[in-house]
Simulated scan of single mutants.
Amino acid sequence: MRAVVYNGRNDISIDDVAEPKAGEGEVKLQVGYNGICGSDLHEYFAGPIFIPQDDVHPLTGASSR
């Protein structure tokens, strides 16, 4: 599936990532629409502010370190 991936300040990309599968007790939703808000713009231009930097992304396995 295609996903917008935040790579760091002023750096996003559209990448192919593995489609997640719902585990036990989880649901998977199909997104109809999405948007961005002011905090997203702050994260893009001045970040990282809110995105944790020590975690591994659950879909891509990428680390921001």
Rank of each mutant, 00 (worst) to 15 (best):
R2T: 13
N34C: 12
D40A: 09
P52L: 00
M1W: 07
V5H: 01
I51Q: 05
Y33H: 03
P48A: 06
A46L: 10
E19C: 07
D16K: 12
V4S: 09
E26H: 11
V4Q: 13
E26P: 06
K21F: 01
G61W: 04
L29P: 11
H57Y: 01
V5R: 01
S39G: 09
H57E: 11
I36C: 14
E26I: 02
R9C: 11
N7A: 02
R2S: 14
G38N: 04
I36K: 12
H42R: 14
G23N: 08
A18I: 00
H42L: 12
I36M: 05
Y6M: 02
G8Q: 05
S63D: 14
V27S: 15
I14E: 11
V4N: 09
D54W: 06
Y33C: 06
E24H: 07
L41N: 08
D55R: 15
V4D: 10
E19F: 06
V31T: 10
C37H: 05
R65F: 15
Q53I: 02
G23Q: 14
G8W: 00
S39D: 05
I51F: 00
C37A: 01
C37T: 15
G47E: 05
E43A: 04
S39P: 06
R9S: 01
E43Y: 04
L29T: 05
I51C: 02
G47K: 01
E19V: 11
P52H: 03
